[in-house]
Nucleic acid binder design. Structure first.
Length: 847
DNA sequence: AGCACGCCGACT
DNA sequence: GTCGGCGTGCTC
């Protein structure tokens, strides 16, 4: 840094060693660049890369943002504003994270702000709501400073406030009209009339547990005896005291009383009077105190080193993985469903922890609600953090901080757990790596957590283990090419064999009139048999609601969504027609609005109808449905799963949700109600998805020594895919599929970037898509660009949609250049004012 | 993403 | 005559 620049940019008297610092910050906005702010000299030593600061952005907005870089280069074209506040003394975002976030923004064609927005729990974001409050020592009449009219206005407003006693910056802005009110605030702060409370900062609030303990003076034996005598006439209070002493061994353990007892334990005990508890507190016999507790109350002492006995094949697989890790950073564990991958993971996690590294274990959403968490908690106790999408923000912050502080060495979490502030990863595990739920579609960043995990491993020098019974074709290809190690587990754990899979020809059964609604006689009979044997059944139907379509039998009228190009689905439970794309709903129609006919019938079927039919046909069965509609509430999954586990329910009907990671020992039959709808999908991944779905759902059948059965209903049993599913032959499936991919130029041979153009007006949508295609062709060549084309559902939430597919060579240099070209092409379209309102959305590696 | 600045319709 | 519609341009 040259001093000369300092003289120019610094108004204050420079000293010889005076350094003016600037920071580049990431604003939580979709802006392409970083912004540079100036550090107030006195606060130079508070600058932390990865820490949060508050800055003024534009005229009104006060934002908190992340410091991405610190330097001494004064911007030449503009005067940098000062940082207003420092929030953190230590980074909330680590350096490895910043590196990863930069990579994500570049790779997935979005802004750093979008990545930061997705990454930070909102309690860490503290948007624009800094607040000001009257300074307690401030006396308006006696203060020495003259006030401007604006300042008076603010003081008036603050004085008029009763309970809240504070104003947000936005409120101050409104109060004064416009302009930079920050000057006024600064002046008032200088005059010590107000202060700014930065605990604005943390919306995070710790969980406080109300506890009670015996007051210290009663702790001696003689005093306690006296206390008992005093209370003889107060039986209710005596009861409480007895209960307390029963639970807290005050003599055996000198710290026991100090730790106290949860107040709720006494007040909610059925035999005790809550008011007696309060009386004891009021009279100073019991003492109430607050204890800040973790939202993750877990065993303080994990059961030290539970020894899992790995089976012979598990041990072999584990050793093989370790050997591969000697030379390769990534290993694919291809293990059939029920082969006991989890035990291997646990073993490897232990080793990684012993080596001093952190571990991230990614799972799809649904698998996380199951037994795995309890199992890991038993092994890793309070070192294990859990990151779930249904967690509250406070819970997220707690995990975030736990990772920062080192409290959590292992985190088990869903997709978004890749954002956590690790800085010393030793191992990453991506279980069910083929899962499409690792890919985020909306909003940006449209990332795939599997790919991000691979990159994290690369950046932090950690090993990555991918696990699946049905690996993604791309992943298996990498393994085959020798880029990943490949370890195969082809036997189920314990005695369980692979289930028998049978096909049921529904067309034939329909002709023979042996179908009952959507159940073949075979399936229905098998369900009855299993229930009779006190075994459980899972039925899979890939569609929620009662019926996907309703239609007038007389004129053919079909109710459609107003906002989307889809027909409305009938939901019987709520007696509504609902759009599955925008949430629009209306009451079910009983009379056709087009012709007045009353013959409005449902067409097709979803989970709700299957549940309904089954309840009618098999009244003895206890049926539960698990789909998006029944699992919206926070603990709904848990409830459904635990009911099924305890065999309160014996048939589980569901969508994709039932295919994933659930592990019930007593399930001996899995039925796929309609396989056809899964196979026929206009997408190059349709076969892969269908194969995975069939195998995964089949995997739910038969565990712990029982052989399971899978019945697949289809109108065309001759399709090639069934053969591979029945024979459980992944390799054959893979060989066939990889050939197709090569022939048609799909991943893993080519990389795909899908561009989506959205516009409220159909014509403009099409024109914008054509324009974008043109720009792309100009830059990437005709061969690389396919489309534009309207997707099957060409309008969602009132936006028309056009899609363009870009196919690229896999080489990194090609990709980097192509992304630059794509950005340019998008800018070129956006520069045309008729397309101002078009939304251009790039999706890298779509699924 | 907001939010201010800037040019054309229905109201006191 | 004005109030206000939302089109577009900028934010260190």
């Amino acid at each position: 840094m040259t001093l000369a620049l300092d003289f120019i940019s610094d108004q204050q008297t420079p000293t010889a060693d005076r350094v003016t610092l600037f920071v580049d910050v990431i604003l939580p906005l979709p802006l392409p660049r970083l912004y540079t702010y100036r550090v107030p000299f006195e606060l130079n030593d508070r600058v932390v890369i990865g820490g949060r600061v508050i800055v003024q952005f534009g005229a009104k907005k006060t934002l908190s943002c992340i410091v991405a870089a610190v330097h001494e280069q004064a911007p030449k074209e503009y005067q940098a504003k000062y940082i207003l506040e420092f929030i953190d003394d230590a980074p909330v975002v680590t350096q490895p994270q910043l590196k990863l976030f930069r990579w994500m923004a570049e790779y997935y064609l979005c802004t750093l702000g979008e990545v930061i927005n997705a990454a930070l729990p909102s309690a860490l974001k503290l948007s624009s709501e800094s607040r000001i409050q009257l300074h307690p020592a401030f006396e308006r009449d006696t203060n020495e400073y003259p006030m401007t009219s604006q300042e008076d206005k603010i003081l008036d407003a603050l004085g008029a406030l009763e309970d809240a006693k504070s104003l947000t910056f936005t409120e101050v802005g409104d109060l004064l009209g416009v302009a930079s009110f920050h000057k006024v605030i600064k002046s008032l702060m200088h005059k010590e009339a107000i202060f700014l409370f930065e605990h604005t900062a943390d919306k995070y609030s710790p969980k406080v547990l109300k506890k009670v303990r015996l007051h210290g003076r009663h702790l001696t034996e003689s005093n306690l005896e006296r206390l008992f005598e005093d209370l003889t006439s107060k039986p209710k209070q005596l009861d409480v005291l007895m209960k307390y002493l029963q639970r807290v061994p005050v003599y055996q353990d000198e710290h026991a009383n100090h730790r106290g007892l949860e107040k709720a334990y006494l007040t909610s005990s059925p035999h005790l009077s809550p008011s007696a508890v309060n009386t004891l507190i009021k009279n100073g016999i019991l003492e109430q105190f607050d204890q800040i507790v973790s939202r993750f109350p877990m065993d303080e002492n994990p059961i030290a080193h539970i020894q899992f006995e790995l089976s012979e094949s598990q041990t072999a697989a584990r050793d093989e993985i370790m050997t591969y890790f000697g030379e390769k950073d990534i290993v694919l564990l291809h293990g059939v469903t029920g082969s006991g991958k989890t035990e291997i993971y646990i073993d490897l996690i232990r080793q990684a922890l012993d080596g001093g590294g952190q571990v991230l274990y990614l799972l799809p959403e649904i698998a996380l609600t199951t037994q795995i968490v309890t199992r890991l908690l038993r092994v890793f106790g309070s070192r294990l953090g859990i990151y779930h999408s249904k967690f509250s923000d406070n819970e997220r912050v707690e995990v975030w901080n736990g990772v920062l502080s080192g409290r959590f060495q292992v985190v088990i979490g869903v997709r978004s757990a890749v954002f956590l502030p690790f800085d010393n990863l030793g191992l990453l595990i991506v279980d069910e790596e083929h899962e499409s739920s690792y890919k985020q579609y909306e909003p940006a960043p449209r990332y795939n957590a599997r790919e991000v995990a691979l990159m994290m491993g690369n950046f932090q020098g950690a090993k990555v283990l991918l696990g699946s019974a049905t690996p993604a074709v791309e992943t298996y290809y990498q393994a085959k090419q020798g880029r990943y190690g490949l370890v195969t587990l082809s036997k189920r754990f314990g005695e369980a064999g692979m289930p028998d899979i049978e096909l049921i020809d529904t067309r034939k059964q329909r002709e023979q009139k042996t179908m009952h609604n959507h159940f073949s006689a075979d399936l229905l009979g098998e369900i009855e048999r299993k229930l009779g044997a006190k075994e459980q059944v899972i039925l899979f139907q890939n569609r929620r609601g009662y019926a996907p379509v309703v239609a007038c039998q007389d004129c053919g009228w079909i109710p459609k969504c107003n906002n989307c190009a889809v027909s409305l689905s009938y939901h019987k439970h709520s007696h509504e027609l609902r759009c599955h794309y925008c949430g629009y709903h209306e009451s079910m129609v009983t009379k056709c609005p087009a012709c007045g006919s009353r013959a409005v019938k449902t067409v097709g079927f979803g989970t709700e109808k299957i549940e309904d039919d089954l309840k009618i046909m098999l009244p003895q069965a206890s049926v539960q449905r698990m789909d998006l509609d029944t699992t919206r509430a926070k603990n709904a999954y848990q409830q459904i799963i635990s009911d099924f586990e305890k065999q309160v329910t014996n048939v589980l009907v569901g969508t994709q949700m039932v295919t994933k990671g659930l592990d019930f020992a007593n399930v001996s039959l899995v039925g796929i109600i309609n396989a056809d709808s899964i196979i026929h999908y206009p997408d190059f991944r349709a076969h892969e998805r269908a194969y995975q779905m069939f195998v995964q759902v089949s995997g739910r059948a038969g565990r712990k020594g029982k052989k399971g059965k899978v019945l697949i209903q289809t109108s065309d049993p001759t399709q090639v895919i069934f053969d591979k599913v029945i024979r459980n032959d992944y390799l054959e499936f893979y060989n066939y599929e990889i050939m197709q991919r090569q022939e048609h130029g799909y991943p893993p041979f080519m990389r795909i970037i899908k561009m989506t153009v959205k516009h409220m007006e159909q014509g403009l949508c099409e024109q914008a898509a054509i324009a974008l295609t043109g720009e792309l062709v100009d830059r990437l060549g005709r061969a690389a660009v396919l489309g534009p084309e309207a997707p099957y559902i060409f309008r969602i939430r009132n936006f028309y949609i056009q899609e363009i597919t870009i196919k690229l060579d896999r080489a990194h240099t090609v990709l980097k250049h192509a992304k630059l070209m794509i950005t340019e092409a998008m800018d070129a379209v956006k520069d045309q004012k008729e397309f101002r309102q078009a939304r251009l959305v790039p999706d890298v590696d779509p699924m």
